[in-house]
Design a protein around this nucleic acid. Structure first.
Lengths: 263, 263
DNA sequence: ATCCTATTATTTATCTGATAAATGGATTTT
DNA sequence: AAAATCCATTTATCAGATAAATAATAGGAT
């Protein structure tokens, strides 16, 4: 076992054993490690991970608070169906992405962004105060700097989108900070690998301009266009993947036919 | 102290002491009971609420998992700023509404619905499977029954909107179940008290028809119209409230002027 | 005086072991 | 066959001790 085994509670991220166990169990649950078998009882968990019952119980309680587990006497601790997980929790989001890269998940992320972010941009144009708008402009300036190699392209892009969510003045929109940051991290990696170009500066510029001009509909439209572009790329990749899959299935079919002596 | 004092851990809702304390502390934090003073340390909490340290620690850990608290040795347990709370958590939502009715909060709820629900309706029209569409139609049928007095108007309205979120096939949209249910509960009460009429059946009918016809843009538009109607009502009430406030301020000004002998 | 270092006090973190309460299943009784 | 009782399992709760982290303080070096 390596010195920094992520499945070990003591070396896993988190300031202490409880957070370490939280992370290990959360990841295991979300990635489906318990799919065939029942979730262990308190005593077994303690034994398996070499921690006391208090640590185990506290980690289980936290997973319960995030909607992943429920515990009852005699019944034991059981994993709840994914629909009752709190998908907007930072930890849950991170665990979701620890499973193998999934175009489907990226598409679902982007479907959400496609409605949230135009809404936030419109609200920012309507209600955004001076500080909020300044942060948006700052985010855009950083993207320009990144284009010239003087700032990080990923960080600055995320800062831009988060600034708009926060300028909306609506705490519910602001909550999407982590979702958008997570989605962008995945999305930008994917986009760059897929067609090797950076975020569109003119597209982002159009959003800033509309917000500054206090034009909600224009801001929403510009944002929608930006994300729709990402979406079309994802659809394209999905189609290509399905075609590839069909090809693979066809060749398997062919191979099996040959095995059966039908060719 | 009453036999069912909600500030008492033992009678508060929740299956056990830990959940009781979770509820009591969560409500206190969200409603601002600790605004002037620091959050108590572990030992004080145990003493105040008459429970063991284990119960206290587990409740604090759950509140931490919902983003309301952080704990560190020597520093103690502190309340995090509302922006880092998990506003989409069912408990947090419930606690938010325990504070006095707020038009601002209802407006923010509705601003969110105004982008989420049209998006979900469009996705339901695009991807919704037979089961999903059947549940939407069922929800609408229940609303018709409610109009005739054979079902609950509130429950059926919520069922309708939730069915659309779930038919979207996107788990992130489905997550808004609780937010929408909570918002509707408040919203419908407000709407009915404000102008004493029930949910618009034709408005809901238009949504169902568009979804069944596999018309995403039509479904989104119909949903947008429905919620925009609620929104205009909220704006109207807000304006009226502000006008009332202005009137009060004007009369105070007049009174003060008289006191100063300027009239 | 100022900066660095060691000590100290406070608070959470962790462990252990015991008892209580809840509950699903088996057993007995009616 | 139905109802009541008992039993085994698992979480819930309590108590008390020790460890670890860290902010504040005091002391010492420059």
């Amino acid at each position: 076992m390596s010195a920094s085994d992520p499945s070990d509670v003591r070396t896993s991220l988190g300031r202490n054993l409880t957070y370490g166990l939280l992370d290990v169990l959360g990841r295991m649950i979300v990635t489906g490690a318990y799919d065939g078998r029942p979730f262990p009882i308190e005593a077994e968990l303690s034994k398996e991970h070499g921690v006391s019952r208090s640590v185990t119980r506290e980690a289980v309680k936290m997973l319960g608070a995030k909607g992943l587990l429920t515990a009852r006497p005699r019944q034991g601790t059981i994993i709840t169906p994914p629909t009752s997980w709190n998908w907007f929790d930072t930890d849950v989001l991170r665990w979701l992405l620890e499973r193998k890269f999934s175009l489907a998940l990226l598409r679902q992320f982007t479907e959400l962004r496609l409605t949230i972010e135009p809404g936030a941009a419109a609200l920012a144009a309507q209600y955004g105060d001076a500080d909020g708008l300044a942060l948006i402009q700052d985010g855009y300036a950083r993207m320009e700097a990144a284009e010239a190699g003087h700032d990080d392209p990923l960080i600055s892009d995320i800062a831009f989108h988060v600034a708009i969510l926060e300028a909306s003045g609506n705490p519910f929109y602001a909550q999407f900070r982590d979702v958008v940051a997570t989605a962008l991290q995945t999305s930008i990696q994917f986009t760059n690998r897929y067609r090797g170009r950076n975020a569109s500066l003119p597209g982002h510029r159009a959003i800033v301009d509309s917000i500054i001009a206090r034009d909600p509909e224009g801001a929403a439209q510009a944002m929608r266009a930006l994300i729709a572009d990402v979406m079309s790329l994802i659809r394209e990749a999905t189609a290509r993947q399905n075609a590839g899959q069909a090809l693979v299935e066809a060749s398997i079919e062919q191979a099996e036919s040959q095995t059966r002596g039908m060719v």
